[in-house]
Each structure stands twice: as structure tokens, then as C-alpha cells.
Amino acid sequence: MNLFGAGFAWILAPRHWVTTAEGSGIGDALVHHLFLTAVSVLITVVIAGPLGLYIGHTGRFRRVAIGASNAARALPTLGLLSALILLLGIGDVPPVVVLVVLGIPPLLAGAYAGLESLDRQTIDAARAVGMTEFQILRKVEIPLAAPLLLGGLRAAALQIVATVALASVFGLQSLGTFIIDGLAQADYVKMTAGAILVAALALLLDGVLAVVQRLVGPRGVSRGTDRHRTTARDGKKPVALTQDAH
């Protein structure tokens, strides 16, 4: 508790917000942290968004996509970052590449799972009234699957914003600077402050995206899905309980 109190006090001290020869300031670190997050999320969306929609709409390459994104999940992030730093030198490109690799699997999964979860009859109906495939995607599938699509984005953004901290192992500014430098300097108050800052930023970003996710969902549809799931779970519960009793 004491360490947390000291960590908060450290964050609130104005002199820790400006960069000096003594160390990086929270201001600069926060700006660069957000910059790396924004660029990485944007590139992730540009790559995984269309790909996920294509796979979800057509059902093609699904197996390949699942395999590839599971393989990407297994990549050790710090190892990949070290390798890219040694290859490309210290700069923003290596962490962005690593973060995009990290962000693609959840976003891709959200996109194709979102489209696959839709009622096929709705899509057949849209086709029957003469919509083109692109119209079906834009006017039916994306709006209906929006909560799951945004769920994927939310998962990707959360992973990215928390992992940006690793870039500071190689001297790049981010909120991770305080964690990594604090550990090396045995300054555990600074380290705690860094951890609080990263956690707070991640919670804030996730909260904002959660609100957006709630706003974009077509109300009737999402509620219907929820009720369906609840009943299914309720039906299974007693069985599970009796099995536990044995």
C-alpha cells in the first residue's frame, strides 16, 4: 500500500512530467506511448480489418487465417523486438511491426467470428431483395456484427497499449521507461509509478472503446444474442453442479 501511495505521489510531482538529463518526463513518455499505440492500432485495422471481413463474408481461407494468427500469438514479443532492433536499428519501426503482429490475431478473430455469428437467413434475405455482395457486407453484415468487430478492436488495442512499454527496453520513450529504468536503478517507487500509468492508460482506452462498442450495437440484435446465451448456460448449469458433487 505504501509503495502505491508513493507511486501516486511520484506521478503527481510536477518535476517528473518534464524530461531532464536525470531522466525522461511523463509528458514526453505519454505522448510517444500514445503515438506508438495509435500508429500500431491504425496499421492493424488497415491490415486485419478488410482481411477479417473478407474471410468472414466468404468463409474462404478461414483455416489458414486461424492457423496463421495462432502462430503469430505464439511469437515471443520481446524476442521479435530484439531481432528487429538488431536488424533495423533503434527506432519506431521495430516496435510498430511487433505491435501490429500482436494486434492482428484478436482483430482478425473478431472480424470473422462477428460475420460468422450472424443469422444466415438474414443474409439470404438481403441477397433475395437484390443486394450486391458489397451491399450485404456494408449494410447488413458490418452493422449487425459491429459489437463483435469492435470487441476485436478493443482486445487488439488493449494488448497493444500495454505492450508498447517493451519498446523502452531499447531506449524508446514510453510509459514503460519508468518500469524498466526503475527496475535497473532499484527505484521501486518510479517502477510502481510506471506500472500505475500503463495500467491507467490501458483501462482508460478500454473504457472508451467499451462505451463506443455499446453505442454502435443495434440494440435488438445484441440483446437477443445475449438472452439466447444466458438460457443455454442456465440449462447446462445444474448438470455441471451434479458432476461436481460426485
Binding site: 538529463a21 530484439s82 538488431l86 536499428g89 533503434i90 531499447f170 531506449g171 529504468d181
Partner: peptide, 23 residues
């Protein structure tokens, strides 16, 4: 006139790379 960059590899390959490429 010092500007500090922290690289946590104890003067290892990443530090060397940063020196050689002029970072």
C-alpha cells in the same frame, strides 16, 4: 551536453548496433 538513451542489454548487440548506425 549529454543526451541519454537507456538500452537494457549491458553494452550488448543492441547498444553496439545503435553506436554503429549513428543512433
Amino acid at each position: 551536453n549529454l543526451k541519454f538513451t537507456a538500452i537494457s542489454d549491458g553494452g550488448g548487440p543492441a547498444t553496439l548496433k545503435a553506436l554503429l548506425d549513428g543512433t
